[in-house]
Simulated assay, not measured.
Amino acid sequence: MTFLNVQQIGPMATVQDLGRRGLQHAGVSGSGPMDAPSFRIANALVGNEPSSAALEFAGVGGSFTVSRPVRFAVTGGDVDIRLDGMKAYSWESYDLLPGMTLSIGALRDCVWGYLAISGGVNVAPVLGSRSTHLGTGLGGHEGRRLQIGDRLPIGEAGASANLALRQPWRRDARPIQIVYGPQDDCFSADVQETLLGTLFTVSARRDRMAQMLDGAPIRAAAGHDIVSDGTCPGSIQVPASGRLLVLMAERQTAGGYPKIATVASVDLPRLAQVVSGRAIRFARISQEQAEERLIGERQALRDTLANLVAKPRGDNQRGDTLH
């Protein structure tokens, strides 16, 4: 069996695939990557199926070795990557051979990074997924964050070329788009205007379950306790503190705080990648607009994956003709 050996690791590294489906009624949220487009691109760059498991890390990657030749790719954003001291680059794939050390440093201007290995991380599926759900200890590698000394099994991979993006995956600075509801009627018109008319700062109080936003308090007219109902990725809960709480990949499946709005699915990965301390602004769109923009984003991702560029054969360095 082939293994990916963890020599050093950041504080929030887990095994993820595209997540679990159909278990919210049992209290199990989907988990999966915080930035699904970056995750999908990483797998495509090494020739994996979209559902293959990879590593997600926050802030800092780590150091890794392997017991047989593999391809790897790192995505998510700009990061210092070294292959036996040789500089490598995100958003393209390279060969990692036995005896080499892959080192991934700190992410710059983003939060979540992805390391895909050809063949995928072949941990045993739990409830239909290899994703780690930290809150319940399900899936991944022993249901927990990775640590030094872990050995992760790698699946078999077919032969393919090393690849690179033709152009960087887009990530613009437009306002974060939201759809009002389901409990926007709990908030006055003035409060709703405050939501759209002021800046909010991404707090350092964040994890895979939720991220808190600092800014003007948002108050519900009739209080902040409701009969618990279902949540979805991007639900913006408003507890009694008035501080906005955006639910993310490992959210609870039901909650008793009113939800003034929901972050549009097209913008949730972008919000996840906003670094702590940076200000954001919201823009209201309709449900129909949110659906149209998500469809457009998915088509743009398909086009990106269909137009990956093959690097020169045997080239384990950055190809000048690709950039």
Rank of each mutant, 00 (worst) to 15 (best):
D35E: 09
G27Q: 12
E49T: 11
E56G: 10
L245R: 05
L102T: 08
I9N: 02
Q8L: 10
L163H: 03
L45Y: 04
A58H: 03
C232M: 10
C186G: 05
A53S: 13
L4C: 05
L146D: 07
I178L: 14
R208C: 08
T262N: 14
R68K: 15
G155Q: 02
V60W: 06
A220D: 10
K311S: 01
G19C: 09
A306D: 14
G215M: 12
G135M: 00
G319Y: 14
A54T: 08
S188Q: 12
L23Y: 12
G139F: 13
G32K: 00
A88N: 03
F39R: 04
A26M: 14
L213K: 09
V123Y: 03
K259T: 02
V227N: 12
L247T: 09
R278H: 11
R281I: 08
E292A: 11
A279K: 15
S276T: 11
D109F: 03
I176Y: 13
Q8N: 10
M212T: 08
N307S: 12
V70Q: 04
L55R: 08
R40A: 00
G76K: 02
S160V: 04
T253V: 15
G140N: 05
D229M: 06
R293I: 00
I280H: 00
D185I: 12
I178C: 06
A220M: 11
S118M: 07
F64A: 06
M209S: 05
F3S: 09
T14V: 11
E292L: 10
A204H: 10
A44W: 00
S235L: 08
R205V: 13
S52R: 13
A222P: 01
G296S: 14
A300Y: 06
V28S: 00
K311F: 01
G120S: 03
I236K: 06
G30H: 05
R243H: 12
M248F: 08
T136R: 12
V6R: 05
F187K: 12
A272M: 07
V126C: 12
L301F: 00
A13D: 11
Q167N: 06
F57Q: 02
S188G: 15
G59D: 13
E142K: 15
N5F: 00
T198E: 09
F39Y: 15
Q8G: 01
P153C: 00
A216I: 00
L102V: 01
K87W: 03
I176N: 04
L199A: 13
A204S: 12
Q192L: 15
V111T: 14
L18M: 12
I260T: 05
E291M: 07
L115H: 08
R293W: 10
S241P: 05
G181W: 06
R130P: 10
N43S: 10
A42F: 06
V70I: 14
I280E: 02
G242L: 11
S188D: 15
T262M: 10
L308S: 02
G242S: 07
L138T: 04
F282K: 15
V74M: 00
V227D: 01
Q16C: 07
L146G: 03
N43L: 09
L18G: 05
V179Q: 01
L152A: 04
Q237E: 11
W112P: 05
A306M: 07
S52T: 07
G277L: 14
R68E: 15
L308C: 05
D207K: 00
G181S: 09
A88P: 01
T65F: 03
R206S: 14
R251A: 09
S29K: 06
D78E: 11
T136D: 13
L322Q: 15
Q317S: 13
F39Q: 07
A283K: 15
V126K: 01
